[in-house]
Design a protein around this nucleic acid. Sequence first.
DNA 1: CCTGAAATATCTAAAAG
DNA 2: CTTTTAGATATTTCAGG
Lengths: 155, 155
Amino acid sequence: MKLDPYDRALLAALQDDARTPQSALGEQVSLSTAAVNRRLKALAGEGVIERFSAQLNPKALGYDLTVVVEVKVESERADLLDQMQRSFAACPQVQQCYYVAGDCDFVLIFLVRDMEQYVALTRKLFFESHNVKTFKTLVAMNRVKTGATVPVDAA
Amino acid sequence: MKLDPYDRALLAALQDDARTPQSALGEQVSLSTAAVNRRLKALAGEGVIERFSAQLNPKALGYDLTVVVEVKVESERADLLDQMQRSFAACPQVQQCYYVAGDCDFVLIFLVRDMEQYVALTRKLFFESHNVKTFKTLVAMNRVKTGATVPVDAA
DNA sequence: CCTGAAATATCTAAAAG
DNA sequence: CTTTTAGATATTTCAGG
Protein backbone atom coordinates (compact mmCIF):
# COMPACT_ATOMS: atom_id res chain seq x y z
CA MET A 1 0.00 0.00 0.00
CA LYS A 2 2.62 2.51 -1.09
CA LEU A 3 1.54 5.93 -2.22
CA ASP A 4 3.76 7.86 -4.54
CA PRO A 5 3.53 11.62 -5.08
CA TYR A 6 1.13 11.09 -8.00
CA ASP A 7 -1.27 9.17 -5.80
CA ARG A 8 -1.10 11.80 -3.10
CA ALA A 9 -1.76 14.59 -5.56
CA LEU A 10 -4.74 12.70 -6.94
CA LEU A 11 -6.12 12.06 -3.48
CA ALA A 12 -5.76 15.69 -2.50
CA ALA A 13 -7.55 16.80 -5.63
CA LEU A 14 -10.35 14.30 -5.15
CA GLN A 15 -10.91 15.34 -1.57
CA ASP A 16 -11.29 18.88 -2.79
CA ASP A 17 -13.60 17.98 -5.65
CA ALA A 18 -14.53 14.40 -6.33
CA ARG A 19 -16.03 15.37 -9.66
CA THR A 20 -12.86 16.56 -11.29
CA PRO A 21 -12.66 14.66 -14.58
CA GLN A 22 -9.84 12.20 -14.81
CA SER A 23 -8.56 14.08 -17.82
CA ALA A 24 -8.26 17.26 -15.74
CA LEU A 25 -6.62 15.32 -12.93
CA GLY A 26 -4.17 13.99 -15.46
CA GLU A 27 -3.25 17.48 -16.56
CA GLN A 28 -2.77 18.67 -13.00
CA VAL A 29 -0.40 15.87 -12.11
CA SER A 30 1.06 15.26 -15.57
CA LEU A 31 -0.34 11.83 -16.21
CA SER A 32 -2.48 10.42 -18.96
CA THR A 33 -6.18 9.89 -18.36
CA ALA A 34 -5.67 6.16 -18.53
CA ALA A 35 -2.96 6.27 -15.86
CA VAL A 36 -5.22 8.32 -13.61
CA ASN A 37 -8.02 5.84 -14.14
CA ARG A 38 -5.83 2.90 -13.25
CA ARG A 39 -4.52 4.57 -10.11
CA LEU A 40 -7.93 5.61 -8.91
CA LYS A 41 -9.27 2.13 -9.36
CA ALA A 42 -6.35 0.71 -7.42
CA LEU A 43 -6.75 3.29 -4.65
CA ALA A 44 -10.41 2.45 -4.34
CA GLY A 45 -9.71 -1.26 -4.42
CA GLU A 46 -7.12 -1.00 -1.66
CA GLY A 47 -9.55 0.98 0.45
CA VAL A 48 -7.49 4.16 0.44
CA ILE A 49 -10.52 5.85 -1.08
CA GLU A 50 -13.44 4.72 1.05
CA ARG A 51 -16.22 6.39 -0.85
CA PHE A 52 -17.36 9.39 -2.81
CA SER A 53 -19.88 11.48 -0.97
CA ALA A 54 -21.89 14.64 -1.40
CA GLN A 55 -21.37 17.15 1.37
CA LEU A 56 -24.62 18.82 2.23
CA ASN A 57 -25.36 22.11 3.94
CA PRO A 58 -26.90 21.09 7.29
CA LYS A 59 -28.71 24.39 7.63
CA ALA A 60 -30.54 23.82 4.36
CA LEU A 61 -31.90 20.60 5.81
CA GLY A 62 -33.04 22.19 9.05
CA TYR A 63 -30.09 20.91 11.05
CA ASP A 64 -28.28 23.87 12.48
CA LEU A 65 -27.39 23.03 16.07
CA THR A 66 -24.19 21.24 16.97
CA VAL A 67 -23.65 19.92 20.47
CA VAL A 68 -20.56 18.31 21.93
CA VAL A 69 -21.21 15.82 24.71
CA GLU A 70 -18.86 14.16 27.14
CA VAL A 71 -20.15 10.95 28.66
CA LYS A 72 -18.94 9.07 31.72
CA VAL A 73 -20.03 5.48 32.12
CA GLU A 74 -20.86 3.48 35.21
CA SER A 75 -19.29 0.22 34.16
CA GLU A 76 -16.51 -0.51 31.68
CA ARG A 77 -17.84 -3.98 31.03
CA ALA A 78 -17.04 -4.81 27.43
CA ASP A 79 -20.49 -6.00 26.50
CA LEU A 80 -22.09 -2.86 27.90
CA LEU A 81 -19.60 -0.61 26.12
CA ASP A 82 -20.19 -2.45 22.85
CA GLN A 83 -23.91 -2.02 23.16
CA MET A 84 -23.53 1.68 23.86
CA GLN A 85 -21.24 2.17 20.90
CA ARG A 86 -23.67 0.43 18.62
CA SER A 87 -26.57 2.56 19.76
CA PHE A 88 -24.51 5.75 19.40
CA ALA A 89 -23.30 4.82 15.94
CA ALA A 90 -26.80 3.92 14.84
CA CYS A 91 -28.18 7.37 15.65
CA PRO A 92 -28.19 9.54 12.51
CA GLN A 93 -27.83 12.72 14.54
CA VAL A 94 -24.59 11.48 16.06
CA GLN A 95 -22.04 12.83 13.63
CA GLN A 96 -18.96 11.64 15.47
CA CYS A 97 -18.35 9.41 18.44
CA TYR A 98 -15.04 8.59 20.09
CA TYR A 99 -14.25 6.23 22.91
CA VAL A 100 -11.52 8.08 24.73
CA ALA A 101 -8.98 7.79 27.51
CA GLY A 102 -9.00 10.70 29.89
CA ASP A 103 -11.48 12.57 32.05
CA CYS A 104 -14.47 11.05 30.32
CA ASP A 105 -15.25 7.89 28.39
CA PHE A 106 -17.09 8.99 25.26
CA VAL A 107 -17.15 12.19 23.27
CA LEU A 108 -20.05 12.62 20.88
CA ILE A 109 -20.83 15.33 18.37
CA PHE A 110 -24.53 15.78 17.72
CA LEU A 111 -26.05 17.56 14.78
CA VAL A 112 -29.68 18.26 15.64
CA ARG A 113 -32.60 20.42 14.56
CA ASP A 114 -33.05 22.08 17.94
CA MET A 115 -32.61 21.65 21.65
CA GLU A 116 -35.79 19.67 21.90
CA GLN A 117 -34.46 17.04 19.58
CA TYR A 118 -31.17 16.98 21.46
CA VAL A 119 -32.89 16.43 24.78
CA ALA A 120 -35.01 13.67 23.31
CA LEU A 121 -31.93 11.92 21.96
CA THR A 122 -30.06 12.15 25.25
CA ARG A 123 -33.02 10.54 26.99
CA LYS A 124 -33.10 7.80 24.43
CA LEU A 125 -29.36 7.17 24.17
CA PHE A 126 -28.16 7.89 27.67
CA PHE A 127 -30.93 7.08 30.09
CA GLU A 128 -32.07 3.93 28.39
CA SER A 129 -28.59 2.47 28.35
CA HIS A 130 -28.54 2.31 32.18
CA ASN A 131 -24.78 2.72 32.03
CA VAL A 132 -24.28 6.48 31.77
CA LYS A 133 -23.09 7.96 35.02
CA THR A 134 -22.99 11.62 33.91
CA PHE A 135 -22.82 13.62 30.73
CA LYS A 136 -21.77 17.18 30.07
CA THR A 137 -23.29 19.25 27.27
CA LEU A 138 -21.30 21.84 25.32
CA VAL A 139 -23.38 23.82 22.85
CA ALA A 140 -21.52 25.02 19.78
CA MET A 141 -21.81 28.76 19.25
CA ASN A 142 -19.67 28.54 16.15
CA ARG A 143 -18.65 25.64 13.94
CA VAL A 144 -15.16 26.92 13.33
CA LYS A 145 -14.19 23.95 11.20
CA THR A 146 -16.06 20.91 9.95
CA GLY A 147 -15.73 18.57 7.03
CA ALA A 148 -11.96 18.77 6.95
CA THR A 149 -9.93 16.63 4.61
CA VAL A 150 -7.36 14.05 5.63
CA PRO A 151 -3.81 15.36 5.23
CA VAL A 152 -2.09 13.67 2.30
CA ASP A 153 1.46 14.73 3.02
CA ALA A 154 4.14 12.07 2.80
CA ALA A 155 5.51 10.65 6.02
CA MET B 1 -35.44 26.43 -0.62
CA LYS B 2 -38.11 23.77 -0.29
CA LEU B 3 -37.12 20.14 -0.43
CA ASP B 4 -39.68 17.60 -1.46
CA PRO B 5 -39.35 13.86 -0.82
CA TYR B 6 -37.68 13.39 -4.20
CA ASP B 7 -34.98 15.88 -3.31
CA ARG B 8 -34.43 14.26 0.05
CA ALA B 9 -34.14 10.82 -1.48
CA LEU B 10 -31.63 12.11 -4.01
CA LEU B 11 -29.59 13.82 -1.31
CA ALA B 12 -29.54 10.68 0.80
CA ALA B 13 -28.39 8.61 -2.14
CA LEU B 14 -25.68 11.09 -3.07
CA GLN B 15 -24.33 11.23 0.46
CA ASP B 16 -24.06 7.48 0.34
CA ASP B 17 -22.44 7.38 -3.09
CA ALA B 18 -21.84 10.55 -5.03
CA ARG B 19 -21.00 8.54 -8.13
CA THR B 20 -24.37 6.96 -8.61
CA PRO B 21 -25.37 7.68 -12.20
CA GLN B 22 -28.33 9.95 -12.57
CA SER B 23 -30.12 7.21 -14.46
CA ALA B 24 -29.76 4.89 -11.46
CA LEU B 25 -30.88 7.66 -9.12
CA GLY B 26 -33.90 8.12 -11.30
CA GLU B 27 -34.82 4.48 -11.00
CA GLN B 28 -34.41 4.51 -7.23
CA VAL B 29 -36.68 7.48 -6.72
CA SER B 30 -38.93 6.94 -9.75
CA LEU B 31 -37.92 10.00 -11.74
CA SER B 32 -36.59 10.41 -15.23
CA THR B 33 -32.90 11.03 -15.74
CA ALA B 34 -33.68 14.52 -16.98
CA ALA B 35 -35.68 15.33 -13.87
CA VAL B 36 -32.87 14.09 -11.67
CA ASN B 37 -30.40 16.20 -13.59
CA ARG B 38 -32.50 19.30 -13.17
CA ARG B 39 -32.99 18.75 -9.47
CA LEU B 40 -29.33 18.12 -8.78
CA LYS B 41 -28.34 21.25 -10.59
CA ALA B 42 -30.82 23.26 -8.59
CA LEU B 43 -29.70 21.70 -5.31
CA ALA B 44 -26.10 22.53 -6.09
CA GLY B 45 -27.02 26.04 -7.18
CA GLU B 46 -28.94 26.71 -3.98
CA GLY B 47 -26.02 25.49 -1.92
CA VAL B 48 -27.84 22.50 -0.46
CA ILE B 49 -25.09 20.39 -1.97
CA GLU B 50 -21.87 22.07 -0.96
CA ARG B 51 -19.41 19.84 -2.72
CA PHE B 52 -18.51 16.35 -3.77
CA SER B 53 -15.64 14.86 -1.91
CA ALA B 54 -13.66 11.65 -1.71
CA GLN B 55 -13.54 10.13 1.74
CA LEU B 56 -10.14 8.67 2.41
CA ASN B 57 -8.98 6.06 4.88
CA PRO B 58 -6.78 8.00 7.34
CA LYS B 59 -4.86 4.89 8.31
CA ALA B 60 -3.78 4.33 4.73
CA LEU B 61 -2.20 7.78 4.77
CA GLY B 62 -0.38 7.24 8.04
CA TYR B 63 -2.87 9.21 10.10
CA ASP B 64 -4.25 6.89 12.69
CA LEU B 65 -4.40 8.83 15.96
CA THR B 66 -7.41 10.91 16.88
CA VAL B 67 -7.27 13.26 19.83
CA VAL B 68 -10.06 15.34 21.31
CA VAL B 69 -8.93 18.54 23.00
CA GLU B 70 -10.79 20.93 25.23
CA VAL B 71 -9.34 24.41 25.41
CA LYS B 72 -9.97 27.18 27.91
CA VAL B 73 -8.92 30.68 26.98
CA GLU B 74 -7.54 33.50 29.09
CA SER B 75 -9.39 36.34 27.42
CA GLU B 76 -12.64 36.36 25.47
CA ARG B 77 -11.58 39.42 23.50
CA ALA B 78 -13.12 39.14 20.05
CA ASP B 79 -9.95 39.86 18.13
CA LEU B 80 -8.02 37.25 20.07
CA LEU B 81 -10.73 34.65 19.59
CA ASP B 82 -10.87 35.37 15.88
CA GLN B 83 -7.16 34.92 15.54
CA MET B 84 -7.29 31.63 17.42
CA GLN B 85 -10.10 30.34 15.28
CA ARG B 86 -8.23 31.22 12.12
CA SER B 87 -5.10 29.43 13.27
CA PHE B 88 -7.09 26.37 14.32
CA ALA B 89 -8.99 26.22 11.08
CA ALA B 90 -5.80 26.63 9.06
CA CYS B 91 -4.20 23.54 10.59
CA PRO B 92 -4.75 20.52 8.33
CA GLN B 93 -4.60 18.11 11.26
CA VAL B 94 -7.50 19.90 12.95
CA GLN B 95 -10.45 17.94 11.61
CA GLN B 96 -13.13 19.75 13.59
CA CYS B 97 -13.20 22.80 15.78
CA TYR B 98 -16.14 24.19 17.72
CA TYR B 99 -16.41 27.33 19.78
CA VAL B 100 -18.67 26.22 22.59
CA ALA B 101 -20.61 27.42 25.60
CA GLY B 102 -20.02 25.36 28.69
CA ASP B 103 -17.10 24.19 30.79
CA CYS B 104 -14.56 25.00 28.12
CA ASP B 105 -14.28 27.39 25.19
CA PHE B 106 -13.07 25.32 22.25
CA VAL B 107 -13.32 21.67 21.37
CA LEU B 108 -10.94 20.44 18.70
CA ILE B 109 -10.59 17.05 17.04
CA PHE B 110 -7.09 16.32 15.83
CA LEU B 111 -6.13 13.66 13.33
CA VAL B 112 -2.40 13.13 13.62
CA ARG B 113 0.32 10.65 12.68
CA ASP B 114 1.48 10.09 16.24
CA MET B 115 1.79 11.67 19.66
CA GLU B 116 4.90 13.50 18.63
CA GLN B 117 3.05 15.36 15.93
CA TYR B 118 0.21 16.09 18.33
CA VAL B 119 2.54 17.58 20.92
CA ALA B 120 4.24 19.68 18.27
CA LEU B 121 0.89 21.02 17.10
CA THR B 122 -0.26 21.90 20.61
CA ARG B 123 2.93 23.84 21.14
CA LYS B 124 2.41 25.68 17.91
CA LEU B 125 -1.31 26.32 18.20
CA PHE B 126 -1.77 26.75 21.95
CA PHE B 127 1.40 28.16 23.42
CA GLU B 128 2.08 30.60 20.64
CA SER B 129 -1.39 32.08 20.86
CA HIS B 130 -0.67 33.44 24.37
CA ASN B 131 -4.37 33.13 25.08
CA VAL B 132 -4.79 29.49 26.08
CA LYS B 133 -5.27 29.10 29.81
CA THR B 134 -5.48 25.31 29.90
CA PHE B 135 -6.21 22.41 27.61
CA LYS B 136 -7.26 18.87 28.29
CA THR B 137 -6.27 15.99 26.02
CA LEU B 138 -8.53 12.99 25.40
CA VAL B 139 -6.93 10.29 23.29
CA ALA B 140 -9.33 8.26 21.17
CA MET B 141 -9.05 4.54 21.77
CA ASN B 142 -11.78 3.85 19.25
CA ARG B 143 -13.30 5.97 16.51
CA VAL B 144 -16.79 4.68 17.04
CA LYS B 145 -18.26 6.88 14.33
CA THR B 146 -16.80 9.34 11.86
CA GLY B 147 -17.76 10.68 8.49
CA ALA B 148 -21.47 10.57 9.24
CA THR B 149 -23.98 11.95 6.81
CA VAL B 150 -26.41 14.78 7.48
CA PRO B 151 -29.91 13.49 8.26
CA VAL B 152 -32.25 14.20 5.37
CA ASP B 153 -35.51 13.50 7.14
CA ALA B 154 -38.32 15.98 6.66
CA ALA B 155 -39.08 18.42 9.44
C1' DC C 1 4.70 1.32 -15.26
C1' DC C 2 3.33 4.47 -19.17
C1' DT C 3 0.73 6.73 -23.55
C1' DG C 4 -2.77 7.40 -27.03
C1' DA C 5 -6.80 5.94 -29.43
C1' DA C 6 -11.03 3.53 -29.70
C1' DA C 7 -15.30 1.85 -27.51
C1' DT C 8 -18.65 2.46 -23.84
C1' DA C 9 -21.21 4.96 -20.64
C1' DT C 10 -22.84 9.14 -18.74
C1' DC C 11 -24.28 13.77 -18.68
C1' DT C 12 -26.68 17.77 -20.43
C1' DA C 13 -29.70 20.46 -23.02
C1' DA C 14 -33.34 20.97 -26.19
C1' DA C 15 -37.75 19.78 -28.20
C1' DA C 16 -42.31 18.29 -27.73
C1' DG C 17 -46.30 16.35 -24.99
C1' DC D 1 -43.79 17.01 -14.78
C1' DT D 2 -42.68 13.40 -18.59
C1' DT D 3 -40.09 11.09 -22.68
C1' DT D 4 -37.04 11.13 -26.45
C1' DT D 5 -33.31 12.82 -29.08
C1' DA D 6 -28.73 14.29 -30.06
C1' DG D 7 -24.28 16.00 -29.11
C1' DA D 8 -20.69 16.85 -25.73
C1' DT D 9 -17.99 14.79 -21.90
C1' DA D 10 -16.23 11.25 -19.16
C1' DT D 11 -14.84 6.61 -18.26
C1' DT D 12 -12.88 2.34 -19.41
C1' DT D 13 -10.54 -0.90 -22.13
C1' DC D 14 -7.04 -2.28 -25.23
C1' DA D 15 -2.92 -2.18 -28.19
C1' DG D 16 1.69 -1.27 -28.01
C1' DG D 17 6.29 1.25 -26.14
